[in-house]
């Protein structure tokens, strides 16, 4: 049994020539739960997407490794096979492909040719997970996410995580769209899974609200503002944010209002904006 380690150093990334991540440093080990919070539009999903390899982002500099794997050098499917998992904020809908068929293909892709999972053990595990998540029993046989309610999609992401057993799971706003019961079900299942797998799985939890953290106790809480982790604390930091918002923190850190800062940056440092994306386009 090994304890995985995700190590991110000075990660910078852009979308459409606009630099979003401005130097992220973060280390997550198996067994740990890290919450990432922060105001809208400050780069949380970008960080998740860059780690998973979403082609819409360009990496400018920095490194990200999962154990010995250089994540940034791997194609998306290889990152998944190396142990990364991302529960997406907006999962895709795919018609004509049943959830169960898709899951089986995914599980088999991880196991590799010649080592495919038998139908019976697969169905057994699927049914167990569906039951644990208290999902409607017909969901595995419906087309992947098509016509699923917002909450059903989120639960389906967790179902995939349970089936794939990643080393490092990033859950991007898994609580949005969940009703009160579903929040508890998803929360307790994630906590249980981390516990069951002992030190074998780490979790990065992107969220806006304490309500999720009531069910999934984080070991660390990070605040991501303007593409950087500006503060790290324990569970008490999340509680403070829930009560007081972000203003006190910005004040403490000497940050101006965010919208204002973005404006000034655009006018005073135009050379920097898009520099990263441009560099990549030029192949530098």
């Amino acid at each position: 049994m090994s304890q995985p380690k995700l190590e991110i150093t000075n990660l910078q990334a852009a979308v459409e020539d606009k630099t979003i991540l401005k130097g992220i440093n973060l280390t997550v080990r198996g067994g740990e739960i890290h919450a990432i919070m922060g105001p809208n539009g400050n780069g949380k999903s970008t960080l998740a997407g860059v780690l998973m390899g979403n082609p819409k982002y360009q990496v400018c500099s920095g490194t990200a490794t999962l154990d010995e794997a250089d994540l940034l050098a791997l194609p998306v499917d290889e990152r998944s096979k190396a142990g990364m998992f991302l529960a997406m904020q907006y999962p895709s809908e795919i018609g004509g492909v049943t959830n169960a068929d898709f899951l089986r293909s995914a599980v088999n892709a991880h196991r590799g040719e010649g080592n495919e999972i038998g139908l019976f053990p697969f169905v057994k595990k699927l049914n167990q997970s569906v039951k644990k998540l208290e999902m409607r029993e017909d969901l595995p046989h419906r087309y992947l996410n098509e016509g699923f309610s917002g909450g059903e999609k989120k639960r389906n992401e967790i179902l995939q995580m349970m089936m794939l057993e990643p080393k490092m799971a990033i859950l991007d706003e898994i609580d949005s769209g969940l009703d009160i019961d579903a929040l508890r079900i998803v929360g307790t299942n994630v906590t249980q899974l981390v516990k069951d797998r002992e030190q074998e799985m780490g979790v990065i939890l992107i969220t806006h609200y304490q309500r999720l953290l009531d069910y999934i106790q984080p070991d660390f809480v990070h605040v991501l503002i303007d593409g950087q982790i500006v503060k790290t604390g324990g569970p008490e930091l999340a509680k403070r944010l829930e009560e007081d918002g972000y203003d006190w923190l910005k004040e403490e850190l000497g940050l101006k209002s965010l919208t204002l800062e973005a404006d000034t940056e655009e006018t005073t440092r135009p050379a920097n904006i898009g520099a990263c994306g441009t560099r990549q386009k030029l192949g530098l």
Binding site: M52, D77, F85, F102, S105, A109
Partner: peptide, 21 residues
């Protein structure tokens, strides 16, 4: 991207979407 993020290769992902179509 979504399918690949679950471990399917580009080719497998295309095949699955095609079948679905």
């Amino acid at each position: 991207y979504y399918l690949q993020s679950r471990g399917l290769s580009n080719h497998e992902a295309n095949a699955l979407v095609t079948l679905g179509f």
